[in-house]
């Protein structure tokens, strides 16, 4: 927030406010509101009870109705603030008939009062409906979806790093016939996004029996051309003399790759790993096609299925959307500079 403060007092050049300062100020202010606002609204809403979610206009914070245990009644009674001729006071509702509510004073449960419902408002305090988060895990399949998402993300990222770095090593450190052909072939695949080969890919994955299997989601995504390129460009900067020296010492080619080249490529591997995690966690179209049975859904597919029901249970849906968002937000908070550097440097995404 201090950034906002110093920012407010900044001008362009001298003491005068330039119009560009005002535009900058408005743009950045609107930016914070529009970019963060929706996600913040999602988080706030995710703690509201179903009754509160259907309120219009919505309240900013989640509230819960306060209740009181009153002598002579088994269940806790909801509290209301009543304002009428005899002043303002807090009463508990026993039952309601039409527009008249029968209410008692929790301190003095013997006398029943009849209150017109127009004269009262629910007594509420800020409170969080944690059930929105717990129920989907305990009662529905979201635990399974989360496990599936973690499995797909982890395994796909590991395979991506391994196979892409091996290919990049061969393409940057060996001179063999047909190398350029392979490079061109990989460039060519940049042009073929998954959405263009959906039908044949589905038949192949189906042919090898991987429909409704998480491996069917993982395998088609791991040979990323962008990954091979990123790593190859980086490995080209590693001096060949280093490899020659290791060969003099009778290191095998595999050792050279594993113990010399890979550690030196660590920064590029880290960038690719971060991207891969975000990509695979967020994948939607391909998992949507391959996974049709509930127990293999990933979080994204599960969320979509939930959102597509006739009676959308928004309180659960919003909470699970927040859960789905968490890993990516963590990446954003801690690793954002790697990503922005990666994009600015290579146009990767």
């Amino acid at each position: 927030m201090s950034a906002v403060g110093t920012f407010l007092t900044r001008r362009r050049g001298g003491d005068r406010w330039d119009w560009t300062d005002i535009v900058t100020f408005l743009w950045l202010g609107a930016g914070v509101f529009i970019m963060f606002g929706p996600a913040l609204w999602l988080v706030l809403s995710s703690f509201k009870s179903p009754a509160q979610l259907s309120e219009f206009p919505p309240t900013l914070l989640p509230y819960e109705a306060r209740t009181a245990v009153v002598e002579g009644y088994d269940k806790p009674l909801p509290l209301f603030v009543v304002t009428d001729d005899s002043g303002t006071r807090t009463l508990a509702e026993v039952r309601r008939v039409g527009t008249i509510a029968q209410m008692v004073d929790p301190e003095n449960p013997a006398t029943m009062e009849r209150i017109n419902i127009a004269n009262r408002t629910p007594d509420r305090a800020v409170g969080f409906s944690w059930g929105n988060y717990l129920d989907p895990f305990l009662r529905f399949d979201f635990l399974k979806y989360t496990q599936n998402s973690i499995f797909v993300t982890g395994v796909a990222t590991l395979i991506t790093l391994l196979t892409n770095s091996m290919a990049a090593f061969a393409l940057s450190k060996y001179d063999f016939r047909g190398r350029n052909t392979v490079v061109v072939l990989i460039i060519a695949t940049l042009m073929i996004p998954l959405s263009v080969i959906l039908v044949p890919l589905y038949s192949i994955v189906s042919g090898v029996g991987l429909i409704n299997s998480l491996w069917g989601v993982i395998l088609p995504t791991v040979a990323t051309p962008t990954g091979v390129f990123l790593l190859r460009q980086y490995m080209l900067t590693i001096p060949d003399e280093l490899l020659e020296a290791a060969r003099m010492d009778h290191a095998s080619e595999w050792q050279i790759y594993w113990r010399i080249v890979l550690p030196l490529t660590a920064p590029a591997l880290a960038v690719l790993a971060i991207f891969s995690v975000v990509w695979r966690w967020n994948d939607f179209l391909w998992p949507l096609i391959v996974l049709s049975r509930q127990e293999v859904y990933t979080l994204q597919v599960g969320l979509n299925a939930y959102a597509g029901e006739l009676n959308v249970q928004w309180h659960y849906l919003l909470a699970m959307t927040v859960i789905t968002m968490i890993p990516v937000v963590l990446v954003f908070v801690f690793l954002q500079r790697f990503i922005t550097a990666g994009i600015a440097g290579t146009g990767l995404k």
Binding site: A39, L42, N282, F284, V328, V329
Partner: peptide
């Protein structure tokens, strides 16, 4: 970072956030 934040969100999350708004 402010402007970059939504880039990392999954399309499903983006869709649901705005469907709710």
């Amino acid at each position: 970072a402010v402007f970059f934040f939504p880039v990392l969100l999954s399309p499903v999350v983006v869709g649901l956030i705005w469907r709710w708004i």
